[in-house]
């Protein structure tokens, strides 16, 4: 089932990348699709990540830096990284301050591709 396939991708990311704690997939307008969260409120993370992504895209466009790769927010206690998944969805990753940033950048690209493929299947099935 696509739902479980999405969730396995999130588990896989947490297992592969040191420091990743929680993650969520949401639609680009901020509705939760599936989440692997612990303490964070997935609905709220989804909505805020959508706003973050929009802001990042718009800012990048405004200053002429080309296509958005991801939005990285760094706080004392960790990172929030938001990726666009195709045109319809997004991936939000919450990590602690020890995050292996280089590893995340390498592993997240294929993960985003696979999530995109799974979501497009869903989209097409509608």
């Amino acid at each position: 089932m696509a739902h479980n396939a999405l969730l396995s991708e999130l588990h896989w990311l947490r297992d592969q990348v040191t420091g990743v704690m929680e993650s969520a997939v949401a639609t680009v307008d901020g509705l939760l699709v599936v989440a692997d969260t612990d303490g964070a409120q997935p609905e709220v993370v989804s909505a805020l990540a959508a706003a973050t992504l929009g802001l990042g895209k718009r800012t990048g466009h405004e200053v002429g830096m080309g296509e958005l790769r991801e939005v990285v927010i760094r706080c004392r206690g960790g990172y929030i990284v938001v990726y666009a998944v195709g045109q319809v969805a997004l991936l939000a990753v919450l990590a602690d301050e020890g995050l292996d940033v280089g590893r995340l950048h390498i592993e997240s690209r294929p993960a985003v591709e696979r999530l995109g493929a799974l979501l497009t299947q869903e989209h097409a099935a509608n």
């Binding site: 089932m1 696509a2 739902h3 479980n4 969730l7 999130l10 969520a24 639609t27 307008d29 901020g30 509705l31 939760l32 699709v33 599936v34 989440a35 692997d36 969260t37 997935p42 609905e43 709220v44 989804s46 909505a47 319809v88 969805a89 979501l119 869903e122 989209h123 099935a125 509608n126």
Partner: peptide, 24 residues
């Protein structure tokens, strides 16, 4: 258990924005 907007027993679909669907 994973948190999901979907009912796993139903065929999968992306959530649509309607009143109350964000559950916020």
């Amino acid at each position: 258990p994973a948190v999901s907007a979907e009912d796993p027993t139903k065929p999968p679909s992306l959530p649509q924005r309607r009143r109350g669907s964000s559950k916020v």
